[in-house]
Nucleic acid binder design. Structure first.
Lengths: 191, 191
DNA sequence: CGTTTGCTTGAATTCTGTCAAAGCAGGTGG
DNA sequence: CCACCTGCTTTGACAGAATTCAAGCAAACG
């Protein structure tokens, strides 16, 4: 049940078997079915979720009711509204499942305790956040300096697994273009 | 010389006077004049810089030679090509000074040692990266869900100090539009 | 088998980019 | 003190690209 989680953990930080059991004590498993919400805008995010199996997305909804996908999460990824989780403020993002999914989740209190108690956990989370920050910076750059077509090509090169599992209108949303536009880009590309 | 740095530090982590002296031993001061590079694309980023005084920007240059500003940094901000700094790979960003500036910098080796040696430093940096990550996520959201005009309004509301110190064509670059477009947006706004 | 969901296509519209030129400080040197 | 750069902003005309609105179609779902 925690296979992928600790696999990911051990790639970033040392972890003895005893310490793994301690960490496991702070985690729990949550199953969520397709189309169910893990988090709704306005609620406080109670957990950081790690995807053991399945697919989720986080997205915001603008004043016209359009969805804007912030992030996808497949196996091995974390997903949360980190700001809401850390501050206790209402979330600005929604998170829901695109497939039936299994998550490893941690609550705020467990997160705080574990950060104090476990050096390994500290190291692991530190690395995760750092990588996530770097990935976001790349995304900003690509969003500001590439055309939609270039962004799409870069996306399918970077996340080939995601492309196959996710409807194209959601990829369009992630890339910041309309579904019709992405469809036309794809047509131009095959010609 | 390190006033702002430790002021920022103490807002995020406890720091005794003795520990401050230890941390100070790992830092150094660097002055940089307007238009000088702190980092050039292709070189390895040797430092993370904290701005004590002045203004810097990081930016990428696309294949057509257009600059795309990733980040501004004024007093109290960090700036670096974190990916290059941590991996030793060539930087994809340029960093230069928009005004004569004073920086507090740390090298990679000092960074690694200090993270191992000082719990306070760990905590401080952990908080900084977390905040930076959250800020970037907001920027992605705003970039994908707001019109250029809304993005500009949001920018001047969020960073009023920056607006006054920086040429408008650079704000346009940060927002991902051409200088002409920003000029027209501003004209529409005053009417 | 009817309904929903996602993808595609077309035509009209709106917005941004491009190119070129002009105006406007601020700074420099004669 | 003035003429002349230089960097920055503004404006106009035009081309190009994405959005909007509407419709059609195929596959998946219950």
């Amino acid at each position: 049940m925690y296979e992928r989680y600790f696999e990911s953990f051990r790639k970033k930080a040392h972890l003895s078997d005893e310490e793994q059991e301690i960490v496991k004590g702070y985690l729990s498993v949550k199953k969520i079915r397709k189309r169910q919400y893990l988090l709704q805008e306005g609620d406080v995010d109670k957990v950081i979720a790690f995807v053991e199996k399945g697919t989720l997305r986080s997205y915001s909804v603008d004043e016209d009711g359009n969805e804007h996908i912030v992030q996808f999460a497949i196996e091995g990824w974390f997903i949360s509204d980190l700001y809401s989780f850390l501050t206790g403020e209402p979330a600005t993002y929604n998170i829901d499942a695109l497939e039936d999914s299994e998550l490893v989740v941690i609550s705020r209190s467990a997160y705080d305790e574990l950060l104090l108690k476990s050096t390994s956990y500290q190291t692991y989370i530190f690395h995760q956040i750092t990588s996530a920050y770097i990935a976001l910076q790349k995304r900003i750059t690509s969003s500001n300096s590439l055309s939609p077509e270039q962004r799409y090509k870069s996306f399918i090169a970077t996340y080939p697994e995601i492309v196959q599992r996710i409807p194209q209108h959601m990829i369009a949303s992630y890339l910041g273009v309309k579904p019709e536009t992405l469809s036309r880009i794809r047509r131009r590309m095959v010609l």
